Amino acid sequence: MSLTSLLIFSGAMLLLAITPGPGFFATIARALTSGMKESAIVVFGIVIGDIIFLLFAIYGLSAVAEKIHWLFLLIKYFGAAYLIYLGWRLWSSDPNIVEIESTKEISQRTSFFTGLFITLGNPKVIFFYVAFLPTFMNLEKLSGVDVLAISSVVAIVLGSTLLFYGYTAVRAKKALNSKHSQKTLNRISGATMIGIGTVLAVKA
């Protein structure tokens, strides 16, 4: 794989990453309610999910993914229910009674699985990579170093883009410190999470 191909692929990934989708909305929602650290963990989960599907595509495992479609279907509905549950908790929570220190560990675990489920709940991602990658490189001739480079591009481009969105949301949140504003943010974020979960559940 040539450096030119990798750079072109990086540019294409950037264009895809900046397009708002479920990962974008989940990152923003988590940033508004829990801060940059938890938002970054959501992004980490999203990136891990993308890399899993990327490797499936590179190693020609799309047929395997089709055969275990039932497993992805279970993940999809479990993830959807999980996101809807989180959204309801955000919607109904009182910002004055949230004890951040006592919920820190749960929050981080929740953030990671939120990001992971968003990607793994949509097995079409693997078929996207199957169709997308061959336009830039010959998948049959990729070396281990090439696979590492491609995975790094996905992680860096997707991760940094979503982190930027999260950082922007956190900066905007600082201007909204009143109880009413925090309650509104919680409801907006909760509605967003419920919406993501609902779309994930009904999406064909």
Rank of each mutant, 00 (worst) to 15 (best):
M193T: 00
K173P: 05
V47K: 04
M36W: 10
E66S: 12
S152H: 02
G144T: 11
V47E: 03
K203S: 13
I150S: 00
I97Y: 12
K174C: 00
K173L: 05
T114I: 12
W70M: 11
I84D: 01
S178A: 03
T114V: 12
L73K: 08
T135W: 04
K173R: 15
A155E: 07
L163Y: 10
P134Y: 01
A81P: 00
G79Q: 08
Y82C: 08
S39Y: 02
I41Y: 05
A201Q: 09
E105C: 00
F25H: 03
A175E: 06
L14Y: 15
A201L: 11
S152R: 02
L158Q: 14
L90Q: 12
Q182M: 12
S102W: 00
S39P: 05
S5T: 06
T19I: 15
Y85S: 13
R30M: 13
D50V: 07
A40F: 13
R171D: 02
F9G: 06
A31T: 04
M137I: 13
L16I: 11
L55P: 04
L86D: 01
S111D: 06
N177T: 12
F53K: 05
N122A: 13
S92T: 11
L61R: 10
I126Y: 02
I68S: 05
G190P: 03
G79A: 10
R187L: 03
N186W: 02
K141V: 07
A17M: 04
I18P: 07
T192A: 11
T110V: 14
G115V: 08
G11M: 05
T27F: 07
G45K: 01
L133A: 03
I68L: 05
I58M: 03
G166Y: 08
S143D: 12
I100N: 01
A57G: 11
I18F: 08
K173F: 02
I51V: 15
F132G: 07
E38Y: 04
K179S: 12
S178D: 05
K183I: 10
V157P: 10
T161W: 01
D146L: 08
V98F: 15
G60S: 08
